[in-house]
């Protein structure tokens, strides 16, 4: 079996599988967080139509994990850390704004 990495952790795969197939085979069904509800998402349509399974591969964003064949040494990132950071920033800004508004009153 070969390996690629997702967020730094190794994922084994059989040559010929897509990134999504390898992740599902490894027991992982979710690898993305939605922007609005912060809900977990993974593979849904499995054939490149729904875009639920988006990942970043070797630095290229917006890749559909279900159509990209896994290759040894591929560096897959989910951006979850990034999303969380962005969300935290937004939340912090919102809190600050509310506080300032409150102060004005």
């Amino acid at each position: 079996m070969s390996e690629f990495s997702i967020d730094g952790r190794p994922v084994p795969f059989t040559e010929g599988q897509t990134v999504a197939a390898a992740l599902v085979a490894a027991g992982r069904v979710a690898w993305r967080t939605t922007r609005v509800g912060h809900r977990p998402r993974g593979v849904f349509c499995g054939i490149g139509v729904c875009f639920d399974c988006l990942v970043t591969i070797d630095g290229a964003g917006g890749q559909r994990a279900c159509v990209v064949p896994a290759r040894p040494g591929m560096n897959v990132t989910t951006g979850e850390t990034m999303t969380t950071a962005a969300t935290a920033t937004t939340a912090a800004t919102a809190t600050t704004a509310t506080t300032e508004e409150g102060d004005d009153d």
Binding site: Q17, V24, R41, V43, C45, I47, C66
Partner: peptide
């Protein structure tokens, strides 16, 4: 239906036929 682990039946079939994976 938006929970992870809910797929289209075509998606289940694609994982199976293309990658030998049961979801």
């Amino acid at each position: 239906w938006d929970l992870p682990g809910v797929l289209t039946i075509g998606g289940l079939q694609a994982l199976l036929k293309g990658g030998g994976v049961t979801a």
